[in-house]
């Protein structure tokens, strides 16, 4: 069953965000994490140590597992960011701050 039917939702028209260069639809009010989940994407980061895939875990901003690079800024929590038209989400490898290493 379509969850939109269950709650009688009538969302406005979708906007488009880019995930690793690919267009992904996002409904108004959806977070980037929700938009990616709805599109079947479950992982958008790899861990620093083992390179293992990570996506949303807690979904409420506490666990910092759902980090990715958004509009060029690394370590953004996708579960908290409302999807805005034209947002670019890039899969983040590790900490995303290689430029700062000394």
């Amino acid at each position: 069953m379509d969850p939109f039917d269950l709650v009688g939702a009538e969302p406005g028209p979708a906007r488009t965000v880019l995930f690793d260069g690919r267009p992904v639809p996002a409904l108004p009010g959806q977070t980037l994490a929700a938009a990616l989940w709805a599109d079947g994407v479950l992982a958008w980061r790899t861990t620093r140590g083992g390179g293992r895939p990570r996506g949303a875990f807690c979904g409420i901003g506490q666990c910092f597992d759902c980090l990715a690079t958004v509009n060029g800024r690394p370590n953004q929590r996708l579960c908290l960011l409302p999807a805005e038209h034209g947002d670019t989400v890039t899969t983040q490898e590790g900490h995303g701050h290689a430029d700062l290493e000394v």
Partner: peptide, 9 residues
Amino acid sequence: TEPLPRIVR
């Protein structure tokens, strides 16, 4: 802070 590379030795 968020996870970082070694920025403080």
